[in-house]
Design a protein around this nucleic acid. Structure first.
Length: 456
RNA sequence: GUCCCGUUCGUCUAGCCAGGUCCAGGACACAGGGUUUUCAUCCCUGUAACAGGGGUUCGAAUCCCCUACGGGACGCCA
Protein backbone atom coordinates (compact mmCIF):
# COMPACT_ATOMS: atom_id res chain seq x y z
CA UNK A 1 0.00 0.00 0.00
CA UNK A 2 1.32 3.41 -0.91
CA UNK A 3 2.02 6.01 1.71
CA UNK A 4 -0.80 7.76 3.50
CA UNK A 5 -0.97 11.46 2.64
CA UNK A 6 -3.61 13.54 4.38
CA UNK A 7 -4.18 17.24 4.35
CA UNK A 8 -5.81 19.91 6.41
CA UNK A 9 -7.04 22.58 4.04
CA UNK A 10 -8.40 25.59 5.89
CA UNK A 11 -9.41 28.91 4.51
CA UNK A 12 -7.89 31.60 6.72
CA UNK A 13 -10.85 33.92 6.96
CA UNK A 14 -10.97 34.51 10.70
CA UNK A 15 -9.91 32.92 13.92
CA UNK A 16 -9.00 29.28 14.33
CA UNK A 17 -12.24 27.47 15.03
CA UNK A 18 -12.46 24.49 17.33
CA UNK A 19 -14.18 22.41 14.66
CA UNK A 20 -11.38 23.11 12.20
CA UNK A 21 -8.88 22.30 14.89
CA UNK A 22 -10.44 18.91 15.43
CA UNK A 23 -10.45 18.19 11.71
CA UNK A 24 -6.77 19.08 11.66
CA UNK A 25 -6.22 16.91 14.70
CA UNK A 26 -7.90 13.84 13.21
CA UNK A 27 -5.88 14.22 10.02
CA UNK A 28 -2.71 14.61 12.03
CA UNK A 29 -3.55 11.60 14.20
CA UNK A 30 -4.13 9.45 11.18
CA UNK A 31 -0.83 10.52 9.63
CA UNK A 32 0.98 9.81 12.89
CA UNK A 33 -0.76 6.48 13.29
CA UNK A 34 0.08 5.29 9.81
CA UNK A 35 3.47 6.92 9.51
CA UNK A 36 2.09 9.02 6.66
CA UNK A 37 2.46 12.67 5.78
CA UNK A 38 0.36 15.50 7.14
CA UNK A 39 0.01 18.41 4.75
CA UNK A 40 -1.19 21.92 5.48
CA UNK A 41 -2.69 23.59 2.46
CA UNK A 42 -4.04 27.10 2.54
CA UNK A 43 -7.25 27.54 0.57
CA UNK A 44 -7.10 31.27 -0.07
CA UNK A 45 -8.82 31.56 -3.40
CA UNK A 46 -11.28 34.13 -2.14
CA UNK A 47 -9.19 37.29 -1.90
CA UNK A 48 -11.98 39.25 -0.31
CA UNK A 49 -12.10 37.09 2.76
CA UNK A 50 -8.56 35.96 3.43
CA UNK A 51 -6.18 37.96 5.58
CA UNK A 52 -2.54 37.53 6.64
CA UNK A 53 -3.58 37.98 10.28
CA UNK A 54 -6.00 35.10 10.02
CA UNK A 55 -3.28 32.95 8.49
CA UNK A 56 -0.94 33.77 11.34
CA UNK A 57 -3.66 32.94 13.86
CA UNK A 58 -4.11 29.59 12.25
CA UNK A 59 -0.42 28.77 12.14
CA UNK A 60 0.02 29.82 15.76
CA UNK A 61 -2.96 27.75 16.81
CA UNK A 62 -1.75 24.67 14.99
CA UNK A 63 1.67 24.94 16.56
CA UNK A 64 0.19 25.58 19.98
CA UNK A 65 -1.79 22.35 19.70
CA UNK A 66 1.32 20.55 18.58
CA UNK A 67 -0.11 19.73 15.16
CA UNK A 68 3.02 20.18 13.11
CA UNK A 69 2.83 19.55 9.37
CA UNK A 70 5.26 17.73 7.12
CA UNK A 71 4.53 19.87 4.08
CA UNK A 72 3.04 23.33 3.81
CA UNK A 73 3.70 26.93 4.73
CA UNK A 74 7.04 27.59 6.42
CA UNK A 75 8.31 24.06 5.83
CA UNK A 76 7.77 23.69 2.07
CA UNK A 77 7.62 20.30 0.35
CA UNK A 78 7.81 18.67 -3.06
CA UNK A 79 4.22 19.42 -4.03
CA UNK A 80 4.02 23.21 -3.53
CA UNK A 81 2.99 25.82 -3.58
CA UNK A 82 0.80 25.08 -0.60
CA UNK A 83 -1.08 28.33 -1.09
CA UNK A 84 -3.87 28.06 -3.61
CA UNK A 85 -3.45 31.72 -4.49
CA UNK A 86 -0.05 30.74 -5.94
CA UNK A 87 -1.30 27.81 -7.99
CA UNK A 88 -3.23 29.64 -10.72
CA UNK A 89 -1.19 28.08 -13.54
CA UNK A 90 -1.94 24.60 -12.32
CA UNK A 91 -5.65 25.36 -12.27
CA UNK A 92 -5.51 26.65 -15.84
CA UNK A 93 -3.88 23.41 -16.96
CA UNK A 94 -6.62 21.40 -15.29
CA UNK A 95 -9.32 23.65 -16.64
CA UNK A 96 -7.98 23.03 -20.13
CA UNK A 97 -8.27 19.29 -19.54
CA UNK A 98 -11.96 19.73 -18.83
CA UNK A 99 -12.46 21.99 -21.82
CA UNK A 100 -10.67 19.48 -24.06
CA UNK A 101 -13.05 16.74 -22.99
CA UNK A 102 -16.04 19.09 -23.23
CA UNK A 103 -16.71 18.90 -19.50
CA UNK A 104 -16.41 22.66 -18.98
CA UNK A 105 -18.34 25.47 -20.61
CA UNK A 106 -18.84 29.23 -20.24
CA UNK A 107 -22.09 30.70 -19.09
CA UNK A 108 -22.96 34.09 -17.58
CA UNK A 109 -19.26 34.95 -17.53
CA UNK A 110 -18.39 32.00 -15.30
CA UNK A 111 -17.14 28.52 -16.14
CA UNK A 112 -19.42 25.57 -15.37
CA UNK A 113 -18.72 21.87 -15.00
CA UNK A 114 -20.86 19.73 -17.26
CA UNK A 115 -22.53 16.66 -15.77
CA UNK A 116 -23.29 13.69 -17.98
CA UNK A 117 -26.88 12.56 -18.31
CA UNK A 118 -30.30 13.48 -19.65
CA UNK A 119 -31.36 17.06 -19.09
CA UNK A 120 -34.76 18.38 -18.05
CA UNK A 121 -36.31 21.59 -16.78
CA UNK A 122 -37.60 21.67 -13.22
CA UNK A 123 -38.82 24.16 -10.70
CA UNK A 124 -36.37 24.50 -7.82
CA UNK A 125 -38.33 25.02 -4.67
CA UNK A 126 -35.30 26.25 -2.77
CA UNK A 127 -33.99 28.72 -5.31
CA UNK A 128 -37.56 29.61 -6.30
CA UNK A 129 -36.93 29.47 -10.01
CA UNK A 130 -36.90 27.24 -13.06
CA UNK A 131 -33.57 25.39 -13.48
CA UNK A 132 -31.99 22.84 -15.79
CA UNK A 133 -31.42 19.55 -14.05
CA UNK A 134 -29.43 16.50 -15.11
CA UNK A 135 -30.11 12.85 -14.49
CA UNK A 136 -26.52 11.98 -13.60
CA UNK A 137 -25.21 8.66 -12.34
CA UNK A 138 -25.14 8.56 -8.55
CA UNK A 139 -21.66 8.79 -7.10
CA UNK A 140 -20.88 6.06 -4.62
CA UNK A 141 -18.31 6.52 -1.91
CA UNK A 142 -17.23 4.01 0.63
CA UNK A 143 -16.80 6.35 3.51
CA UNK A 144 -14.43 5.00 6.12
CA UNK A 145 -16.58 6.40 8.91
CA UNK A 146 -20.12 6.07 7.57
CA UNK A 147 -19.99 3.21 5.12
CA UNK A 148 -21.53 3.32 1.68
CA UNK A 149 -23.02 6.67 0.76
CA UNK A 150 -24.70 7.31 -2.55
CA UNK A 151 -25.62 10.67 -3.97
CA UNK A 152 -26.27 12.04 -7.44
CA UNK A 153 -25.51 15.60 -8.49
CA UNK A 154 -28.33 17.11 -10.41
CA UNK A 155 -27.07 20.45 -11.64
CA UNK A 156 -23.99 21.70 -13.45
CA UNK A 157 -21.95 23.78 -11.05
CA UNK A 158 -19.54 26.69 -11.24
CA UNK A 159 -15.82 25.94 -11.22
CA UNK A 160 -14.48 29.39 -12.13
CA UNK A 161 -16.07 32.64 -11.02
CA UNK A 162 -16.85 35.56 -13.26
CA UNK A 163 -13.75 37.27 -11.86
CA UNK A 164 -11.57 34.42 -13.12
CA UNK A 165 -10.88 32.84 -9.72
CA UNK A 166 -11.47 29.11 -9.35
CA UNK A 167 -13.94 27.90 -6.72
CA UNK A 168 -13.46 25.53 -3.82
CA UNK A 169 -14.74 22.29 -5.39
CA UNK A 170 -12.40 22.64 -8.32
CA UNK A 171 -9.21 23.64 -6.51
CA UNK A 172 -9.84 21.16 -3.75
CA UNK A 173 -9.94 18.27 -6.17
CA UNK A 174 -7.11 19.50 -8.38
CA UNK A 175 -4.82 19.98 -5.40
CA UNK A 176 -5.74 16.64 -3.89
CA UNK A 177 -4.71 15.09 -7.20
CA UNK A 178 -1.50 17.11 -7.49
CA UNK A 179 -0.53 16.54 -3.90
CA UNK A 180 -1.33 12.83 -4.14
CA UNK A 181 -3.70 12.92 -1.20
CA UNK A 182 -4.67 9.37 -0.24
CA UNK A 183 -7.33 10.08 2.42
CA UNK A 184 -9.67 13.03 2.70
CA UNK A 185 -10.67 13.45 6.34
CA UNK A 186 -13.08 16.34 6.81
CA UNK A 187 -16.29 17.42 8.47
CA UNK A 188 -19.62 15.85 7.68
CA UNK A 189 -20.78 19.16 6.28
CA UNK A 190 -18.78 18.16 3.20
CA UNK A 191 -20.51 14.84 2.73
CA UNK A 192 -23.00 16.21 0.23
CA UNK A 193 -20.20 17.98 -1.64
CA UNK A 194 -18.46 14.71 -2.17
CA UNK A 195 -20.56 13.82 -5.19
CA UNK A 196 -19.29 16.97 -6.88
CA UNK A 197 -15.75 16.05 -6.01
CA UNK A 198 -16.13 12.51 -7.29
CA UNK A 199 -17.51 13.84 -10.57
CA UNK A 200 -14.42 16.03 -10.90
CA UNK A 201 -11.95 13.31 -9.98
CA UNK A 202 -13.47 11.07 -12.61
CA UNK A 203 -13.58 13.82 -15.22
CA UNK A 204 -9.83 14.18 -14.67
CA UNK A 205 -9.44 10.43 -15.10
CA UNK A 206 -8.58 9.89 -11.47
CA UNK A 207 -9.81 7.47 -8.87
CA UNK A 208 -11.09 9.49 -5.92
CA UNK A 209 -9.17 9.17 -2.65
CA UNK A 210 -10.58 7.43 0.39
CA UNK A 211 -13.03 9.57 2.31
CA UNK A 212 -13.72 9.81 6.02
CA UNK A 213 -16.40 12.28 7.07
CA UNK A 214 -16.18 13.04 10.74
CA UNK A 215 -19.11 14.21 12.88
CA UNK A 216 -19.66 17.88 13.56
CA UNK A 217 -19.29 19.66 16.87
CA UNK A 218 -22.62 21.09 17.97
CA UNK A 219 -22.95 24.17 20.14
CA UNK A 220 -23.32 23.49 23.86
CA UNK A 221 -26.70 25.20 24.07
CA UNK A 222 -29.35 25.61 21.42
CA UNK A 223 -29.39 24.01 18.03
CA UNK A 224 -26.95 23.79 15.17
CA UNK A 225 -23.25 23.31 14.71
CA UNK A 226 -20.80 25.35 16.66
CA UNK A 227 -20.10 28.65 15.00
CA UNK A 228 -17.29 31.08 15.57
CA UNK A 229 -19.50 33.32 17.62
CA UNK A 230 -20.30 30.65 20.18
CA UNK A 231 -18.61 30.67 23.54
CA UNK A 232 -15.58 28.43 23.61
CA UNK A 233 -15.42 28.12 19.84
CA UNK A 234 -12.04 29.69 19.24
CA UNK A 235 -8.66 28.16 19.90
CA UNK A 236 -7.16 31.56 20.78
CA UNK A 237 -9.55 31.69 23.68
CA UNK A 238 -7.95 28.64 25.26
CA UNK A 239 -4.51 29.97 24.52
CA UNK A 240 -5.22 33.23 26.27
CA UNK A 241 -6.93 31.52 29.19
CA UNK A 242 -3.83 29.42 29.72
CA UNK A 243 -5.40 26.06 29.07
CA UNK A 244 -2.81 23.37 28.52
CA UNK A 245 -2.59 22.62 24.80
CA UNK A 246 -2.23 18.93 25.53
CA UNK A 247 -5.51 19.08 27.45
CA UNK A 248 -7.39 20.86 24.69
CA UNK A 249 -6.03 18.35 22.23
CA UNK A 250 -7.01 15.47 24.52
CA UNK A 251 -10.56 16.79 24.88
CA UNK A 252 -10.91 17.28 21.16
CA UNK A 253 -9.90 13.66 20.59
CA UNK A 254 -12.80 12.62 22.77
CA UNK A 255 -15.35 14.46 20.66
CA UNK A 256 -16.30 11.76 18.19
CA UNK A 257 -13.67 9.21 19.10
CA UNK A 258 -12.87 7.16 22.17
CA UNK A 259 -10.22 4.65 23.21
CA UNK A 260 -13.08 2.20 24.00
CA UNK A 261 -11.72 1.23 27.38
CA UNK A 262 -13.23 3.83 29.72
CA UNK A 263 -10.11 5.95 29.83
CA UNK A 264 -10.32 9.61 28.93
CA UNK A 265 -7.16 11.33 30.01
CA UNK A 266 -4.35 9.73 28.11
CA UNK A 267 -1.08 10.72 26.53
CA UNK A 268 -1.09 11.65 22.88
CA UNK A 269 1.38 8.88 22.03
CA UNK A 270 -1.16 6.35 23.17
CA UNK A 271 -3.98 8.05 21.31
CA UNK A 272 -1.89 7.95 18.14
CA UNK A 273 -1.40 4.25 18.62
CA UNK A 274 -5.09 3.53 19.23
CA UNK A 275 -6.51 5.92 16.65
CA UNK A 276 -8.41 4.61 13.66
CA UNK A 277 -10.90 6.08 11.23
CA UNK A 278 -13.24 3.15 11.77
CA UNK A 279 -13.31 4.03 15.46
CA UNK A 280 -14.79 7.44 14.80
CA UNK A 281 -18.43 7.92 15.77
CA UNK A 282 -21.09 8.72 13.24
CA UNK A 283 -23.18 11.06 15.30
CA UNK A 284 -22.47 14.69 16.06
CA UNK A 285 -21.07 15.68 19.43
CA UNK A 286 -22.12 18.53 21.63
CA UNK A 287 -19.36 20.69 23.03
CA UNK A 288 -19.13 20.69 26.83
CA UNK A 289 -16.96 23.33 28.41
CA UNK A 290 -17.19 21.79 31.87
CA UNK A 291 -15.75 18.56 30.66
CA UNK A 292 -13.05 20.44 28.82
CA UNK A 293 -12.14 22.22 32.05
CA UNK A 294 -12.09 18.94 33.89
CA UNK A 295 -9.73 17.38 31.37
CA UNK A 296 -7.57 20.47 31.64
CA UNK A 297 -7.43 20.25 35.43
CA UNK A 298 -6.51 16.58 35.21
CA UNK A 299 -3.62 17.37 32.92
CA UNK A 300 -2.57 20.23 35.16
CA UNK A 301 -2.44 18.09 38.27
CA UNK A 302 -0.46 15.37 36.59
CA UNK A 303 2.12 17.71 35.15
CA UNK A 304 5.67 17.12 36.35
CA UNK A 305 6.34 19.68 39.08
CA UNK A 306 9.09 21.37 37.10
CA UNK A 307 6.74 22.02 34.21
CA UNK A 308 4.07 23.26 36.56
CA UNK A 309 6.54 25.70 38.06
CA UNK A 310 7.67 26.95 34.67
CA UNK A 311 4.08 27.50 33.70
CA UNK A 312 3.15 29.21 36.93
CA UNK A 313 6.02 31.68 37.10
CA UNK A 314 4.96 34.00 34.27
CA UNK A 315 1.35 33.91 35.49
CA UNK A 316 2.30 34.90 39.03
CA UNK A 317 4.67 37.53 37.69
CA UNK A 318 1.97 39.01 35.51
CA UNK A 319 -0.33 39.09 38.54
CA UNK A 320 2.44 41.02 40.35
CA UNK A 321 2.65 38.43 43.10
CA UNK A 322 6.28 37.66 42.44
CA UNK A 323 9.22 39.26 40.68
CA UNK A 324 12.73 38.14 39.77
CA UNK A 325 13.81 38.47 43.42
CA UNK A 326 11.52 35.73 44.61
CA UNK A 327 13.12 33.00 46.71
CA UNK A 328 13.05 30.00 44.39
CA UNK A 329 12.85 27.41 47.14
CA UNK A 330 9.92 29.20 48.73
CA UNK A 331 8.12 29.55 45.39
CA UNK A 332 8.64 25.90 44.61
CA UNK A 333 7.30 24.74 47.94
CA UNK A 334 4.22 26.94 47.50
CA UNK A 335 3.54 25.59 44.04
CA UNK A 336 4.06 22.04 45.13
CA UNK A 337 1.21 22.16 47.63
CA UNK A 338 -1.02 24.17 45.29
CA UNK A 339 -0.72 21.97 42.24
CA UNK A 340 -2.85 19.15 43.58
CA UNK A 341 -5.75 21.45 44.38
CA UNK A 342 -5.87 24.13 41.72
CA UNK A 343 -8.21 23.58 38.81
CA UNK A 344 -6.79 25.89 36.24
CA UNK A 345 -3.58 27.79 35.92
CA UNK A 346 -5.58 30.98 35.62
CA UNK A 347 -6.99 30.45 39.08
CA UNK A 348 -3.52 30.20 40.53
CA UNK A 349 -2.97 33.89 41.45
CA UNK A 350 -6.19 34.12 43.44
CA UNK A 351 -5.57 30.66 44.84
CA UNK A 352 -2.18 31.45 46.30
CA UNK A 353 -1.85 35.24 46.58
CA UNK A 354 -1.53 35.16 50.40
CA UNK A 355 1.74 33.28 50.14
CA UNK A 356 3.31 36.38 48.65
CA UNK A 357 1.40 39.15 50.31
CA UNK A 358 1.02 40.04 54.01
CA UNK A 359 -1.99 42.34 53.80
CA UNK A 360 -4.30 40.12 51.79
CA UNK A 361 -8.03 40.75 52.03
CA UNK A 362 -10.41 38.48 53.86
CA UNK A 363 -13.05 36.73 51.89
CA UNK A 364 -16.21 38.12 53.49
CA UNK A 365 -18.28 35.04 53.02
CA UNK A 366 -15.65 32.78 54.51
CA UNK A 367 -15.02 35.24 57.32
CA UNK A 368 -18.66 35.44 58.34
CA UNK A 369 -19.13 31.71 58.14
CA UNK A 370 -16.11 30.88 60.27
CA UNK A 371 -16.23 33.64 62.84
CA UNK A 372 -19.93 33.20 63.50
CA UNK A 373 -19.51 29.68 64.87
CA UNK A 374 -18.08 28.62 68.22
CA UNK A 375 -15.51 30.76 69.95
CA UNK A 376 -13.06 31.70 67.26
CA UNK A 377 -11.16 34.11 69.46
CA UNK A 378 -10.41 31.46 72.08
CA UNK A 379 -9.43 28.92 69.43
CA UNK A 380 -7.07 31.33 67.74
CA UNK A 381 -5.48 32.33 71.03
CA UNK A 382 -4.97 28.69 72.00
CA UNK A 383 -3.52 27.93 68.59
CA UNK A 384 -1.23 30.94 68.76
CA UNK A 385 0.11 30.08 72.21
CA UNK A 386 0.77 26.50 71.23
CA UNK A 387 2.47 27.46 67.98
CA UNK A 388 4.72 29.99 69.69
CA UNK A 389 6.04 27.24 71.89
CA UNK A 390 6.46 24.77 69.02
CA UNK A 391 10.08 24.06 68.22
CA UNK A 392 9.85 21.97 65.10
CA UNK A 393 7.55 23.81 62.69
CA UNK A 394 6.55 21.11 60.21
CA UNK A 395 3.39 19.36 59.03
CA UNK A 396 3.68 16.40 61.34
CA UNK A 397 4.28 18.47 64.48
CA UNK A 398 1.54 20.88 63.54
CA UNK A 399 -0.99 18.14 63.05
CA UNK A 400 -0.03 16.64 66.39
CA UNK A 401 -0.29 20.05 67.99
CA UNK A 402 -3.79 20.64 66.74
CA UNK A 403 -4.89 17.21 67.84
CA UNK A 404 -3.55 17.77 71.32
CA UNK A 405 -5.32 21.12 71.48
CA UNK A 406 -8.59 19.64 70.33
CA UNK A 407 -8.36 16.99 73.02
CA UNK A 408 -7.42 19.44 75.71
CA UNK A 409 -10.23 21.90 75.03
CA UNK A 410 -12.72 19.28 73.91
CA UNK A 411 -13.46 20.66 70.43
CA UNK A 412 -13.09 19.34 66.89
CA UNK A 413 -9.79 19.83 65.15
CA UNK A 414 -11.83 21.66 62.56
CA UNK A 415 -12.32 24.53 64.99
CA UNK A 416 -8.59 25.27 64.84
CA UNK A 417 -8.21 24.47 61.20
CA UNK A 418 -11.01 26.75 60.06
CA UNK A 419 -10.01 29.75 62.12
CA UNK A 420 -6.32 29.18 61.52
CA UNK A 421 -6.80 28.95 57.79
CA UNK A 422 -8.84 32.11 57.76
CA UNK A 423 -6.09 33.88 59.69
CA UNK A 424 -3.24 32.87 57.43
CA UNK A 425 -5.00 32.85 54.05
CA UNK A 426 -8.09 35.00 54.37
CA UNK A 427 -10.32 32.28 53.02
CA UNK A 428 -11.81 28.87 53.74
CA UNK A 429 -10.36 26.75 50.97
CA UNK A 430 -6.89 26.02 49.73
CA UNK A 431 -4.04 23.57 50.06
CA UNK A 432 -3.66 21.27 53.02
CA UNK A 433 -3.70 23.38 56.23
CA UNK A 434 -0.61 21.92 57.84
CA UNK A 435 1.35 22.02 54.62
CA UNK A 436 0.37 25.61 54.17
CA UNK A 437 1.62 26.59 57.63
CA UNK A 438 4.87 24.76 57.14
CA UNK A 439 5.50 26.57 53.88
CA UNK A 440 4.61 29.95 55.38
CA UNK A 441 6.81 29.39 58.40
CA UNK A 442 6.37 30.19 62.04
CA UNK A 443 6.92 33.91 61.91
CA UNK A 444 4.35 34.66 59.23
CA UNK A 445 1.88 32.28 60.83
CA UNK A 446 2.17 33.95 64.20
CA UNK A 447 1.90 37.45 62.74
CA UNK A 448 -1.15 36.55 60.75
CA UNK A 449 -2.98 34.99 63.66
CA UNK A 450 -2.23 38.12 65.66
CA UNK A 451 -3.51 40.25 62.83
CA UNK A 452 -6.85 38.45 62.79
CA UNK A 453 -7.10 38.48 66.60
CA UNK A 454 -6.79 42.24 66.58
CA UNK A 455 -9.77 42.77 64.32
CA UNK A 456 -12.26 40.37 65.83
C1' G B 1 -38.93 21.96 -0.43
C1' U B 2 -35.09 18.26 -2.36
C1' C B 3 -30.97 15.25 -1.23
C1' C B 4 -27.45 13.16 2.38
C1' C B 5 -26.17 11.64 7.43
C1' G B 6 -27.47 10.45 12.28
C1' U B 7 -30.57 8.91 17.05
C1' U B 8 -27.74 4.70 24.19
C1' C B 9 -28.23 8.73 31.03
C1' G B 10 -28.71 16.48 30.84
C1' U B 11 -23.59 15.99 28.11
C1' C B 12 -19.27 12.91 26.04
C1' U B 13 -19.28 7.83 25.32
C1' A B 14 -18.69 1.75 25.90
C1' G B 15 -21.63 -2.14 24.03
C1' C B 16 -23.93 -2.79 17.91
C1' C B 17 -20.35 -4.99 12.46
C1' A B 18 -19.63 -11.24 14.56
C1' G B 19 -27.99 -11.19 18.63
C1' G B 20 -27.92 -14.19 24.72
C1' U B 21 -22.57 -12.82 29.76
C1' C B 22 -26.60 -5.57 29.46
C1' C B 23 -33.10 -5.24 34.42
C1' A B 24 -26.99 -1.50 29.67
C1' G B 25 -20.64 -0.01 31.82
C1' G B 26 -17.39 4.49 32.37
C1' A B 27 -16.68 9.86 32.57
C1' C B 28 -18.38 15.13 33.13
C1' A B 29 -22.23 17.68 35.50
C1' C B 30 -25.73 17.44 39.53
C1' A B 31 -27.25 15.64 44.65
C1' G B 32 -25.92 13.30 49.27
C1' G B 33 -22.14 11.32 52.39
C1' G B 34 -16.97 10.21 54.08
C1' U B 35 -11.77 11.36 55.09
C1' U B 36 -12.77 12.49 64.12
C1' U B 37 -8.05 17.73 58.71
C1' U B 38 -10.94 22.91 56.03
C1' C B 39 -11.38 22.63 50.44
C1' A B 40 -11.55 23.32 44.83
C1' U B 41 -7.96 17.37 45.65
C1' C B 42 -9.22 12.28 47.12
C1' C B 43 -12.94 8.29 48.33
C1' C B 44 -18.06 6.38 48.51
C1' U B 45 -23.27 6.54 47.24
C1' G B 46 -27.41 8.26 44.45
C1' U B 47 -30.50 10.30 40.32
C1' A B 48 -30.39 9.24 35.17
C1' A B 49 -30.52 6.36 28.74
C1' C B 50 -31.20 1.82 24.37
C1' A B 51 -36.44 7.96 20.21
C1' G B 52 -41.40 5.41 18.91
C1' G B 53 -43.80 1.49 16.23
C1' G B 54 -43.64 -2.91 13.44
C1' G B 55 -40.91 -7.23 11.90
C1' U B 56 -36.99 -11.45 11.96
C1' U B 57 -35.62 -14.74 16.14
C1' C B 58 -36.28 -19.32 21.42
C1' G B 59 -33.92 -14.53 22.43
C1' A B 60 -32.74 -7.71 19.84
C1' A B 61 -29.53 -1.79 22.48
C1' U B 62 -27.42 -5.12 18.80
C1' C B 63 -30.32 -7.43 12.21
C1' C B 64 -34.52 -5.36 8.71
C1' C B 65 -38.58 -1.75 7.65
C1' C B 66 -41.54 2.58 8.77
C1' U B 67 -42.45 7.07 11.52
C1' A B 68 -40.74 10.98 14.48
C1' C B 69 -36.90 13.99 15.83
C1' G B 70 -31.88 16.09 15.26
C1' G B 71 -27.88 17.62 12.01
C1' G B 72 -25.84 18.90 7.28
C1' A B 73 -25.83 20.32 2.08
C1' C B 74 -28.48 22.70 -1.75
C1' G B 75 -23.33 30.04 -2.86
C1' C B 76 -19.78 32.78 -8.90
C1' C B 77 -18.06 30.94 0.49
C1' A B 78 -14.75 27.22 1.92
Amino acid sequence: MSQVRVRFAPSPTGSFHIGSARTALFNWLYAQHTGGKFILRIEDTDKERNTPEALQHLIDGMKWLGLLWDEGPEVGGDFGSYFQSERKDVYQVYLKKLRDTDRAYDKDGAVFFRLEGDRYQAYDNFKKCEVEKVKAEPQVINDLVRGKVERAEEQDFVIFRKNGEPVFHFVNVVDDICMQISHVIRGEDHLSNTSKHCELFKAFGHTPPEFAHIPLILKSHGSGKMSKRDEGALIDEYQSRNFLPAAVRNYLCLLGWSPKDDREVLPIEEIIQLFSLEGINKNNARFDEKKMSFINSEHLRHLPIDEFINLAKPILTAAKLIDENIDTDYLNSVLKICQEKVRSIDDLPSFCNYFFNEDFDFNEKAKNKILKKGEPKSRLTELLNAIEKLEKFDQVSLEELVQVLAGKFDVNTGAYIHTGRLAVSGTNAGPSFYGMLEVLGKEKTVNRINRLLEII
